[in-house]
Amino acid sequence: MADQGLIRETACAVVDKLKAGVITPLDCLDALEARITAVDDKVNALPTLCFDRARAHAKALMQKPVAERGVLAGLPVPIKDLTDVQGVLTTQGSPIFKDRIPEQSDLLVTHLEANGGVIYAKSNTPEFGAGANTFNEVFGATRNPWDTSRSAAGSSGGAAVALATGMAWLAHGSDMGGSLRNPASFCGIVGLRPSFGRVAHTPAVAVDRNLGVQGPMARNVEDLALLLAAHR
């Protein structure tokens, strides 16, 4: 039985437990999977799950000494569906890419995994991240966690809702005109739009796709700083 008490812990507290050996990354994944099963059908924040991949990565990470497991030490993190994760459905919220499975991860994902992040889900976004409300033709609408008749904002709405509902301790998002900040304000969590170049990612071919930035989301500022530190 997964420990649902973990869901209420801060990301920093969970990482401390991971580093102390009190829990394992697999315990975290079990808790999240149970929470997603209980909650996500009401809010539709994490439409794509990859727990098999996550557990394989967690087991490989656990073969290393704790001191070599990175800043996140095995903490699970969802990735916004605009960003490629190797072997995981990545649609950008568009019917054009509804079956697309990348052969290579974005540099951002590679860095997070090298710093001990375990990717277990893709968070919902409007098509190509264009819009202040999170809905698309592939997965439908993400709903506000406090009132499901309301908007979660966008475009990092899935990430914000996952945090607010206990389906994530930390979450990746991106922002060109408010896509980290607006969902944070709508959902009662924290989002930071870093300076250009602070969070590395694979450059896009289209020039306009390089005008935004990648950034962290969390339930509090201390946890936000933890994820920002892992983005390097």
Rank of each mutant, 00 (worst) to 15 (best):
A31M: 04
R55S: 12
L75W: 12
H111E: 12
D27Q: 10
V85R: 00
D40G: 12
K80T: 06
D40E: 11
A54D: 00
K98D: 10
L18I: 10
V66Q: 13
L72D: 04
L75D: 12
M62I: 01
G93P: 03
L72A: 09
A31H: 02
S94A: 15
V43P: 01
E9V: 03
K98S: 15
T24G: 02
P25R: 04
A11R: 07
K42S: 15
T48V: 15
P102A: 09
A58S: 01
Q86P: 05
L61R: 04
T90V: 07
V14R: 11
L72M: 13
V71F: 00
E33P: 08
K59I: 09
A31G: 05
G21I: 14
G74W: 07
A45D: 12
P47F: 04
A31V: 01
T10H: 09
V88K: 03
T90M: 04
L49I: 09
G21C: 11
V85C: 00
S94L: 15
L49F: 01
A31K: 03
K19F: 11
E9W: 07
G74F: 01
T91V: 07
V15S: 14
E9K: 14
T24E: 07
E103M: 10
L49V: 04
P95E: 02
V14Q: 11
A67P: 03
R53I: 00
R100W: 15
P76S: 06
E103Y: 07
